[in-house]
Nucleic acid binder design. Structure first.
Lengths: 140, 140
DNA sequence: CAGCATCCGTGATGATACTG
DNA sequence: CAGTATCATCACGGATGCTG
């Protein structure tokens, strides 16, 4: 199987250049799955929500406005599996479970929040662009 | 306007604190839609793919491995509407259309790529975490 | 080449009910 | 409280065919 210039390698071997080895632009690369876990609809908000400190399940649920129980649970499992979130369950009654970012998760969340905050700050410009776009389209 | 710790406002008014005004954690806030455009399955890869320079439709399609014509087209429209991508069509035959990031789009892509590259570099750790997680689960 | 229109499957998502 | 299980839906996304 030949590879042309734009193709992307994706192996765990080339340890000396991990960023190329796990290129997300390659369809089969596991890094793409992880990127989707992180940037997914609820993944980004969950990581962002946990950045300030550990939260219990329902605290987090209230923080991430609109997420269902099921989706939050599912998202947390994915993120825990990826090693980004740590789950601390205390066998008390009623049960108490705390979720917190791992060091790796914090690094990810930091970059995510940089994007989020930037976007929030530029929303006026985005909204204006949307209006221009819609106006031109509607006028046709 | 008083704010308690967890509540989130979402108006275009409070121009002095845009980041709070467009809080993405609020369900109804337009910033969440935009965040999804940017971090969505194809949005992030499209923005990342355009970071190095402008590309034609099919060039971009080859770069973002696995994206369908329809999804790329749709993604580009969303990003163009948000003011992140500029579409330059030349009325030649055969048609030539170039897509490039706007200044705003570049800023977004920069932050996105920071996240992507970090993730790519940490994939060994992520993969290992996944194996541990799966091993514990399978053993039960 | 650069798309749009259409059909259509399936997986993501949300609502509801139930458990420890 | 902290979830799991089940079901219904519906939008996402792929394949195909067509246009300029």
């Amino acid at each position: 199987m030949e590879e042309t210039a734009t193709s992307t390698e994706c192996t765990a071997e080339a340890a000396d250049d991990a960023e190329l080895a796990f290129n997300v632009f390659s369809k089969a690369c596991p890094s793409r799955r992880t990127l989707e876990d992180v940037t997914g609809r609820w993944g980004s908000l969950t990581l962002g929500g946990l950045y300030e400190g550990s939260l219990r399940f329902n605290e987090l649920r209230r923080r991430v406005d609109g997420v269902s129980e099921k989706m939050l649970s599912q998202t947390l499992h994915s993120l825990e599996r990826d090693g980004l979130v740590h789950r601390e369950a205390q066998p008390t009654n009623p049960p108490r479970v705390d979720y917190e970012l791992t060091p790796l998760g914090r690094d990810v969340a930091e970059r995510l929040l940089s994007l989020i905050h930037f976007l929030e700050g530029r929303m006026p410009a985005v909204l204006q662009a949307q209006q221009s776009y819609d106006a031109e389209r509607g006028a046709l």
